[in-house]
Design a protein around this nucleic acid. Structure first.
Length: 569
RNA sequence: GCGCUCGUAGCUCAAUUGGAUAGAGUACUCGGCUACGAACCGAGCGGUUGCAGGUUCGACUCCUGCCGAGCGCGCCA
């Protein structure tokens, strides 16, 4: 419908151009849904945009545009309002036709092909496998999964990917922590992983010698400045004492945790096409090869025994180390190789969803993409702000190392997947968000997700009773749907497709969530103000068709959000 | 100190991406079940959009400077 109106405007503008009223045609013409029904169904601001070059007032220009509009049977009338908006009032028939479209297309209604089959790689969560996912990760998981659903719905081919940091010092700290629990030492270091899950993993170890690795350590655990070196010494001692068995401890630890992460995400309705292991970049030699490539193109220099990547040449604030003095690659080195590998897989777009604490890495990753001869704009980084957790009005601080955190699974068990998924995406991702655990747990009825699900269940209930009480009747007449409730409901239905598209293209799932709430609200008002199962069969059939289409849209929308649309609750 | 993300009703958040009178939920005050599910509906109350300038037909939105919050600024991940 927008296209039709755009065409009408363009035709009018072209004739105005011939008459010399305007000089240039605009690049694009915005047609928006009106927010108030006194402003019709669609509004166009083109007269305000062009008034300067037309050298007349916006209202004046609007009148000229309108007088040149060709008549369409889809448009009842056109008005000029406010500073010069052109408001279109559509015919009742063109508004109600959406109902039949929804019924015809069913579950497919709302999807489109604006993505044109372009391939997108979407990486999200990617939390280090050093412990179970906590509620902080939940936001990224819900957001990523929903963005993925939305992009698929509008015609992109999307692959979801989780990057597993299974190499590096943190993993050694994890393995050492597990071993220390296994031998049951009393002197567990403060900077080890202290969560209860470490003990559970150590319980699964058997047949490995219990050697006290603490005496071999030189640095002191009492010196707070030395605490990280103390940990490094512990790791070395652990590796030396265990020999071959170290790998068993290491693998047991990571496999347990990774399995748990996979299970939690799957239970949360989040599916991945690929779990990409950092270790595979090292094993395949890609990490080394990438650094070699950068060295050949003279992007790398040596300073104080380390290799530095000249990222400042590509807009970063300072140069970054890729190979440490001790010969180990940094996390950044793996990341360069990983992004190169992603690009070489041939995606049209690469999206990373990161926690807001990683924003400092965007510049250096983009720099590395440029340095390797790729287009840095192919990478889009979406930042998700932290969720501050509150319990009994007090902020809960969380840390994986100290083991004090609320896990994602605990949250889902307490409030349910639907409420958790919905709650997470209800806020714009870059908005800081307060997650009140007591509110989510104790007052779940106030969560808007139930409000929407309730509308769906109510419609199902009405439809069920209709089919029991009345024989089939397809003789509907949509022109009968003319009371205020019906008009605003139909207006909302007409917006759905556009909402899905903008929600997807802007990576803003909350827009869809708010829309569904509004649609459900319109339905609840309708329900309380009108009776559906009336004696007049044509009116009854029309109203039932209308609420069937509402049910379909709610169901389709909730599915995109990963929320169940129940027939009863 | 520098950088990033923010600041909207008592509280939690929206605002068609620069549009018309800034809207929902919650809290509070009234009212509505012998109709298809009251997990609902209706009415009211609630605002100098952190502050001060600027850009233009038009600013919560863009620019500048302050104030405040969170996060970054390591040869950690």
């Amino acid at each position: 419908m927008k296209d039709t109106l755009q065409l009408l405007i363009i035709n009018s503008l072209e004739s105005l151009k011939e008459n010399g009223v305007i000089e240039e045609l605009p690049e694009s013409i915005r047609i928006d849904h009106s927010k108030d029904k006194s402003q019709g169904d669609f509004a166009c601001n083109i007269a305000l945009v062009l008034s300067k070059q037309a050298k007349c007032t916006p209202r004046n220009l609007a009148e000229k545009i309108v007088s040149n509009l060709t008549v369409s049977d889809k448009v009842d009338r056109v008005e000029i309002a406010g500073p010069g908006f052109i408001n279109f009032f559509l015919s009742h028939e063109s508004n109600t036709s959406v109902i039949e479209n929804i019924i015809d297309e069913g579950e497919g209604y709302g999807s489109s092909n604006v993505g044109n089959g372009k391939r997108v790689l979407l990486e999200f969560v990617s939390a280090n496998p050093t412990g179970p996912l906590h509620v902080g990760h939940g936001r990224g998981a819900a957001y990523g999964a929903t963005v993925s659903n939305l992009l698929r719905a509008v015609g992109f081919e999307v692959n979801n990917e989780y990057y597993v940091n299974d190499a590096g010092r943190q993993m050694d700290i994890l393995a050492t922590s597990v071993y220390l629990r296994y031998i049951g030492t009393e002197k567990f270091p403060d900077n080890g992983y202290k969560g209860d899950y470490i003990k559970s993993i150590s319980d699964q170890l058997s047949g490995i010698d219990k050697v006290d690795i603490l005496p071999n350590v030189k640095a002191s655990s009492d010196d707070s400045n030395d605490i990280e070196r103390y940990m490094d010494d512990l790791i070395v001692s652990c590796k030396m004492s265990l020999g071959e068995s170290y790998k068993v401890v290491f693998d047991t630890a990571i496999n347990n945790i990774l399995d748990g992460i996979k299970r939690d995400l799957s239970g949360f309705g989040v599916e991945y096409q690929k779990w990409f292991l950092e270790q595979s970049l090292i094993d395949s030699g890609l990490s080394n090869k990438t650094i070699k490539t950068l060295q050949d193109s003279e992007c790398i220099y040596e300073k104080e025994g380390a290799l530095w990547f000249r990222t400042t040449d590509f807009g970063d604030e300072k140069d970054r180390v890729v190979v440490r003095e001790n010969g180990n690659h940094t996390y950044f080195a793996s990341d360069i190789a990983y992004h190169l590998e992603k690009l070489e897989r041939g995606y049209d777009k690469i999206i990373n969803i990161w926690g807001a604490d990683h924003h400092g890495y965007i510049a250096r990753v983009k720099a590395s993409i440029s340095a390797l001869g790729h287009d840095p704009d192919k990478l889009e980084v979406l930042l998700v702000q932290f969720a501050n957790l509150y319990r009994k009005g007090k902020k809960v601080s969380m840390s994986t190392r100290s083991g004090s955190f609320v896990t994602l699974k605990e949250l889902c068990d307490e409030v349910g997947n639907d409420a958790a998924r919905f709650f997470y995406i209800l806020r714009k991702s870059e908005q800081h968000m307060d997650f009140d655990l007591d509110l989510a747990k104790s007052k779940t009825n106030e969560n808007p997700v139930f409000y929407i699900q309730y509308a769906h269940a109510r419609i199902c209930s009405v439809l069920k009773q209709a089919s029991e009480k009345f024989a089939d009747s397809s003789a509907y007449d949509l022109s009968l749907l003319s009371n205020d409730y019906e008009v605003s409901l139909i207006k909302s239905l007409n917006r759905y497709k556009g909402v899905v598209q903008s929600s997807a293209l802007n990576y803003e799932p909350h827009v869809l969530a708010y829309y569904l709430r509004e649609l459900a609200g319109n339905f609840h008002s309708y329900y309380n103000g009108s009776e559906f199962l009336v004696d007049d069969s044509a009116l009854r059939a029309s109203r039932l068709l209308l609420i069937s289409s509402v049910r379909q849209v709610i169901s389709n929308g909730l599915k995109l959000l990963g929320v169940v649309a129940p027939e009863s609750m």
